[in-house]
Structure formats: C-alpha cells, structure tokens
C-alpha cells in the first residue's frame, strides 16, 4: 500500500493575521506554522492504515523552504519520506498541477489530503487533482477503511453522512473524525531528521487566478451586556436594534 498525503504549511489557528507590502503579502513575522489541521487528520489516518496494512506513507508539500520544519513534523508523525515542490503555492490550480504530476509518476494506491487548507479555505485542490489524473474524488471523508483493495467511506453531507464504496486508487479530502491527531514521540522526532526529503522544482507556472489585495474585516464593536434577569431586553435588542429576529 503506497499512500501519498498532501500537507499544507499554514499559520497556527491562534495567529494574528496581518499583511505587508501594500496589503499584497502575508506578514510571516512571529507566525508559528503548522500542518494544516485537516491535512493533519489525513496524515494520522494514513499512518494508521500503514500500520494496519503495511506499505509506505509519502508526505508532499508545495511550498518554499520555510515549510521544511512542518514537513519534518509529518515525518516525525510517521511518514516514511517526503517531497517538497519548491515554489510558493500560487493558486489552487498551480498546486493541483504539481500534485497531479507527483501522483502520475508515483503509482500511489491512495492520495489523501485535508478537505481544505485553513489559510485559503478553497477546498478545491483534491477535486482538481482527481480530474487532472482521471481518478475518482471523495470529500469530505470522515471515515475511511480499506478491505481487499476497496475503500469503505463515510462522507459528511448536510445533516448527516453518506456511506460509499470505491476501488483504489482514488483521491480523498479528509476531515475529522477520520483519525485523532498524532503527536510525534521522541523516537519519531529523532528518526525524522534522517528520513529522505526530496526537493523538486515545479512543473510550469500556470495559474488561473491572481491576487490583487488582502484586507481585514472591520473591528467588532464593544459587547453590550444584559442582566440575566432581564432576558426581555435581549429579545427587544435583537428585534429592534440588530433586527435579526
């Protein structure tokens, strides 16, 4: 079983978001980078499947060298080797194209990634990769088991879940509770230092959208506190001031 897990390198959820260069560039100063939270679920499930069925897990990141610590963390969690495509992830199409190239060459049985990145929240890359390489796509996957070359999947739908089956190989966008996040242990951290991390140059530079400018939402006003014995006042405010009921 050869599994490819695509990971994003994103600011930790607690990060303060700010922009520089006339609001055209994300301000990386003081930012702690992490494996995208959804990708982290995909990675955890990939490592579990490897332990259960044998095989290898390759972690793939499209990004610049500042993402290497995050790739090392994926190796510490249990990936056997890693590939970094050495380029800023320009847009979803560009990233999908890079992943598709690796998928075509690699002969993977399973390609997992998060349902979306937590920076651009597009939720597009898995769908694009599937179409580019001609494999089925399933997303968002909340349960994934493999039996005799067939995957049994639970996919989240509005108000519930849907159960489906698909033959390997395929592409999955993952979310919880597919697996629990794994915290690397000391042995994992030590071994990650010597696991292979291959750096490849990108294929082409085609994009389909281009950034003009970033902006931040307006600051939230002060909270209006209401006495617990006066819920009627809250109802009046919601009706007459906020006009939401």
């Amino acid at each position: 079983m050869k599994i490819l897990v695509c990971i994003t390198n994103v600011p930790d959820t607690t990060s303060r978001i700010a922009f520089i260069n006339n609001d055209t560039e994300f301000d990386k100063s003081g930012i702690q980078y992490v494996i995208g939270p959804y990708d982290d679920f995909a990675l955890a499930r990939a490592v579990e499947l490897k332990e259960e069925l044998g095989g290898t897990v390759t972690a793939l990141n499209v990004g610049e060298a500042y993402g290497d610590p995050v790739i090392r963390k994926a190796l510490a969690i249990g990936a056997d080797d890693a590939i970094r495509i050495n380029s800023f992830p320009k847009d979803s199409f560009f990233v999908a194209k890079q992943i598709a190239e690796v998928v075509k060459k690699g002969g993977y049985d399973l390609v997992l990634m998060g349902r979306e990145s937590s920076d651009f929240n597009g939720g597009q890359v898995h769908g694009m990769v599937g179409e580019m390489v001609g494999l089925p796509v399933v997303s968002p996957v909340m349960k994934l088991d493999i039996e005799n070359g067939k995957a049994k999947i639970a996919r989240e739908i509005d108000g519930g879940k849907e159960f489906l089956e698909v033959n390997l190989p395929f592409i999955a966008g993952c979310q919880e509770p597919i697996a629990e996040w794994k915290i690397p242990n000391m042995r994992g951290i030590m071994s990650a230092r010597t696991k292979p991390l291959q750096v490849l140059e990108p294929v082409g530079d085609e994009t389909r959208i281009s950034l003009k400018k970033f902006s931040l939402p307006p600051e939230k006003g002060e909270v209006k506190m209401i006495d617990e014995d006066n819920v009627e006042e809250l109802v009046q405010l919601l009706k007459n001031e906020a006009k939401v009921i």
């Binding site: 600011p11 922009f19 937590s118 400018k213 902006s215 931040l216 939402p217």
Partner: peptide, 10 residues
C-alpha cells in the same frame, strides 16, 4: 480567507 479572519481580492 483565513477561516473568516481576512479577505483576498483575486
């Protein structure tokens, strides 16, 4: 973008 914490004009 950034899970509701910012916007991007593209």
């Amino acid at each position: 973008i950034y899970t509701g914490k910012a916007f991007a004009e593209v």
